[in-house]
Design a protein around this nucleic acid. Sequence first.
RNA 1: GCCCUUGUAGCUCAGUCGGUAGAGCACCACCAUGGUAAGGUGGGGGUCAACGGUUCAAAUCCGUUCGAGGGCUCCA
Length: 581
Amino acid sequence: MAKVEVGERLSKIRHSMSHVMAEAVLEMFPSAQIAIGPSIDNGFYYDFDLPRQLVADDLEEITERMRAIIAENKPFVRTVVSREEAQRMFAEQTYKLELINAIPEDEEVSLYSVGEFTDLCRGPHVESSKELKADAFKLMSIAGAYWRGKETNPMLTRIYGTAWTNAKELRLYMQHLEDVEKRDHRKLGKDLDLFSLHEEAGPGLVYWHPMGARIRQAIESFWRDEHYANGYEMVYTPHIGKSWLWETSGHLGFYKEGMYPPMELDKSDYYAKPMNCPFHIMIYNNSKHSYRDLPFRWAELGTVYRYEKAGAMHGLMRVRGFTQDDAHLFVTPAQMQEEILEVLRFSLHMLKSFGFTEINAYLSTMPEKAVGDPKRWADATEALREAIEAEGLSYEVDEGGGAFYGPKIDLKVKDAIGREWQLSTIQFDFNEPERFNMTFVDSDGVEKRPYMIHRALLGSLERFFGVLIEHYAGAFPPWLAPEQIKIIPVGENFFNYAKELEKRLRKEGFRVSADLGDDRMNAKIRNAQQLKIPYMVIIGEREAEGDLVSVRYRSGKQENGVATEAFIASVKATVASKEQL
RNA sequence: GCCCUUGUAGCUCAGUCGGUAGAGCACCACCAUGGUAAGGUGGGGGUCAACGGUUCAAAUCCGUUCGAGGGCUCCA
């Protein structure tokens, strides 16, 4: 999430803070077993095996003890000992012994001591606990964590803390956390009545309410227009299919536990689709293709179902049923380079249209276990790299991080508060064309294998919606806002005029409604404001007589006595430009 | 799945020592007819997640189940 660049000093502070915490915990529980305590993104943690469960009040006591230790201004002292000596010193500490035994022979075994507390540690640390500020850390939470992250290992108690160089930084970080909480799409989804999830009707399955559906419509129609404009065709395919499809694609072999279980019909097993590709291949293989016909670019907003573990689901971000903005490109080897560049450009264009300006690329290359011709792997990987470089994107390479069936580019965007989200993915597939025996007839009359590229630009609509909600904190730019304009008459006498104006604006294509409730105008403004509606149009006698509107923007900015036609033109321009207001 | 936290009205939450359920918002009705972030009065609405136990008495204590939130990647 929020990756703050952690300077070396800060990571020393955090790491040292974790030692101070371990000392405090050992004071309270002399019999505690201590495991590991590193510095992490925004703070530190330490894992313990404790004689009893911790409660929230314990964190206060630990905090107090930590402050006392910090106040003693004790030095952090590093010593190097022999392996045997270390084993003797930590004879009572089973986790430490395991760690000591895991240190490679050629590395020295170092200890850090602060006051009474000595810990096996690579370091580095601050010189003295006086570099730690008693008011610049906070213990955040208690969590369970498996020893070394393995499910089969014992569960330890982990205490998370955050630590900074001074109190002001801590305060800013706490504010950041508050901001994150305010933007939470689950909270905004409720407040703005956008979507819901229903345990009793199936966990991880999303219900789009009318206001959420309006946003989805705006996304989808833009998406469709752009795809047609970029040489794509739309296809629609079934939601279920016989096991033959998944046996052929190979998914039943390695992905079965990620699929909804089969339903039996007419002595066949049908599965809900976890991906759309085999269906698109069915269309491809329905007839013979010449190299002259390629490339095909077939897109579908395809809803797929995957079994996510109960603990893994999270709002809209991780669900069991979602709609991929999927497309498959079937191209000749000669077209491959150009197609990759185009799809990357298209992807960047789409992301930028949604207000994401900071975009990073991640290139994943051939893993050890891979299918397909190594020459094809090399060509495809090179095409991906060249496309990234042609677009001047900054990128990281994940060597050997590709799927077994092909290399890929992932695009991650940074949102309004600096968090990174993976949205687009462009992947080669050397597996399915082979398994489904896809061919095209080349200019020499020989049947050849096409390149197949999967790509999703927004990822899944559900997740993308969640990211958008958080990015905009629910205040959508006018082109996406579910309600663009709220008409607020100053009193009942102007209800008729409000209705006329509503009709007129709706004819202009705006998502608009008039508030004809019996609230006072003040309350209506407040309601519209809380729904983050971008334009509030206030009308009374002056406006009705002069064909004017008084516009109150979501920002609080005010423009009175605007000619209605001028207002319409201005909103249209803002919508067309996709600007945020 | 496992660990911690948690579950009271549509939403946000209060409920002490066990004594039989409350507030604000939302909703409904009536009054008020208004100029830039909540007008007034009244009303309806809850098997206190479920089940079991302790007790004269359970939202409250104990147990089990279910759900939700956070964590289970950061390496001595």
